[in-house]
Nucleic acid binder design. Sequence first.
DNA 1: TACTATAAGTGACATAATGTCATATGTCAA
DNA 2: TTGACATATGACATTATGTCACTTATAGTA
Lengths: 203, 203
Amino acid sequence: MPKQTFFNLNDDKKNKLVEAAREEFSRVSLYEASIANILKRAEIPRGSFYQYFRDKEDAFFYLLNEHAEERHKNFIENLKAFNGDLFQAMTEVYKTVFQFSRENGNSNFIRNVLMNMNYKIEHAFTKNLTKQNIEHRFHDIYQLVDMEALHVSNEKEFYHLMQILIAVTFHNLVHCVSNEFSETEALDKYISELSLLKKGLVK
Amino acid sequence: MPKQTFFNLNDDKKNKLVEAAREEFSRVSLYEASIANILKRAEIPRGSFYQYFRDKEDAFFYLLNEHAEERHKNFIENLKAFNGDLFQAMTEVYKTVFQFSRENGNSNFIRNVLMNMNYKIEHAFTKNLTKQNIEHRFHDIYQLVDMEALHVSNEKEFYHLMQILIAVTFHNLVHCVSNEFSETEALDKYISELSLLKKGLVK
DNA sequence: TACTATAAGTGACATAATGTCATATGTCAA
DNA sequence: TTGACATATGACATTATGTCACTTATAGTA
């Protein structure tokens, strides 16, 4: 989490800093990113950066969490719109994230995020920060999903189902973005795998 | 790939260097690893390192590929031993990798690999280097697997099935290692998810 | 208004990392 | 012995990171 001083910043300065960080993290991965470039773009001195953020990661995960928050809201909305159809809701999120990764303009942030996806990044994406939050959100989803359609009989089984779905969704995203699939190709692959998932892998 | 000079090294020097690298990559992740530490341990000058490897990654992926090669052989053996039962063979590999991640002695290499798993690392793990190799290996597996038991009707569907299985297997490994699960807990989780995968997610 | 405590801003600096290159050394065949 | 080639070496240029002593701003108080 950024330090309080960051949140105390006036909007202009804050936005300029956030944009500078986003540009740098769009250029390269978290590990290759250079704080010096962010400073240059944001026109702030080195000391100030450390006044606002603990380090490079802190700034990166701030941006990522902002994005993840949006995706979570989308997911909940989709779940409602599709009457609890988990797979349709997930497919919409998949599409959205994939489209973000295709923005060729100023921001390749999501593309870089996906191509360097690891446990910590996935975690930031799917859960949000606190243990409490995770359980709370999981429960929200559990309430909204149409369980009748699913092959699970309790919350624990549903947890496993979600783990599988998340694994396959991210794996697809990363694979398709890394291999520069078109949106149609990516969606085809994802839908094929979802369909196999639904019907089961064995006879 | 390491440079030819590396392979020309006499065994003593080569082993010392490889061990030095393994120790460093066991201490921290690829990105945090310091070449200086490898040099100190291997007692070679800086210039020599770059005579043998292109960079830090080069050394890291050399070690990883060695390991992945072993796992691939295991997998093929298991597939034969279990008469083409894909799930049993995969569960054995899962167990083995998990056990490697638990080695508390000199080497936490696999633990660090799993905890920093990303696309590139997964790729090194599952495929080996060349496109040709990937297709070749995939075909080998396709020949060995008992297709009768599976819910797929052609090689393309089998490809999707393997993608799912790989996604879920790695996701489990990373999750269980990151959260310090015991071997029993990890195996329980994996088996639960495999069972859900087999029977299908929807009714 | 002047004073003071607290927060925020600043950039030079210590430290450590990476990759390169000119130079030195070793090896082997003619 | 010589020359061509491969290998070895460590000083160096460059670029990072995170800290700290010091300055400046702000807001509450006498």
